[in-house]
Structure formats: structure tokens, C-alpha cells
Simulated scan of single mutants.
Amino acid sequence: MTTLTRTLAAVAALGLAVGAASYTPPATAREYVSVTVSNRPPPPRFERVPPPRAGYVWAPGYWNWAGGRYVWVGGHWYAGRPGYVYRPPAWRPYGRGWRIERETWYRDPHWHR
């Protein structure tokens, strides 16, 4: 290989590496479906909350609307997210019915590194 060919190959490899390192995939579209239900959700079921686990957050069970009826979703563990607080789903009155606010993680305003 000649010096010019090696130089061009090195420049091309460097360009590919920089391009690959700076590439960010397009954001995934988030889909949100809102359902309003006319009848109040049943009272929460009793769940025995397991002992705390370091680095995890307990997400309590809740009633979900699926297939035209309420379906119980049992509690489970989520890996903790430093600087964020978990908010469980909750049913809220909405007009003449009920609407669920989905679970979410929100930024903790009191968290500092």
C-alpha cells in the first residue's frame, strides 16, 4: 500500500468513527391512550409489601382497565433511578367518570449529586 492510500484509509476510518460516535437515533414516539370509565374502580386489594431492597422501589398493585372490566395488576419491584421519584398509578374522578393517571417517574427537585 502506498502512503497516500494509507492516509486516505485512515481519514475514512476516522470519519466513520466520528460519525458513528455522534449519531443519535431518532426519539421513539410515545403513545398515550386515555380511557374514561363510568364506574368507580374497586377498592385496592391487600398486598403484603416485601421488605425493602437496596436500589429498588416497590410499585404497589392497582386496578387497570382492560377488556371492558377492571383487572388487578400485582405489585412489583422497579430498579431505582437516582434523582427521580416513582409515582404509582391512581384513579381520579374525571367529569362523570374515572380516569387513570399512569405510573411515572418524575425528577426529584431536592436531589443533588
Rank of each mutant, 00 (worst) to 15 (best):
G74M: 06
V57D: 07
T36G: 00
A59T: 03
V73F: 01
P88E: 11
R45M: 11
A54R: 09
R99G: 09
N64G: 09
R6T: 10
G15Q: 04
G97Q: 12
L14F: 13
T7E: 07
W72Y: 04
T5N: 07
P82H: 13
A54K: 04
N39T: 15
H112I: 08
P43V: 14
P51K: 07
E101T: 01
N64H: 10
A12F: 11
P89G: 13
R48T: 15
L14E: 14
A9W: 07
V37C: 03
Y23T: 10
H110I: 02
L16T: 09
E47Y: 12
H76E: 06
A17R: 00
T24W: 03
T2D: 08
S22K: 13
Y84E: 15
R96G: 01
W77C: 13
G55T: 07
A17F: 07
R30H: 05
T104R: 15
W77I: 14
H110E: 09
R113L: 08
P41C: 02
L8N: 13
W98Q: 09
P51W: 01
P50E: 11
V85R: 11
W63E: 05
P60T: 06
P25F: 13
P93H: 08
R92H: 05
R99Y: 05
S22Y: 08
T7G: 03
W98F: 01
P44N: 05
G75S: 10
I100N: 07
W91A: 06
A79G: 14
G74P: 05
P43S: 08
T3L: 15
W72K: 01
G74D: 12
P25G: 14
P26E: 06
V33P: 00
H76Y: 09
P44S: 02
E47W: 05
V49C: 05
P88M: 09
T5V: 10
Y70C: 02
P88G: 11
W65Q: 03
A10M: 09
G75I: 08
R53D: 00
P50N: 05
P93Q: 12
Y32T: 11
P93N: 01
P88H: 06
W72D: 05
I100T: 06
D108L: 13
G74Q: 14
R99M: 14
R6L: 11
G55E: 04
P93I: 08
A90V: 10
R113Q: 11
V11Q: 03
G61H: 12
W77L: 15
G19W: 02
W72F: 03
W98H: 02
R6F: 05
V85A: 08
W58I: 11
Y62R: 03
W58D: 09
G95D: 11
R81N: 06
Y23P: 04
W65D: 04
T3C: 10
H110V: 00
N64E: 10
T28L: 15
P60V: 04
P52H: 07
G75A: 10
G61K: 09
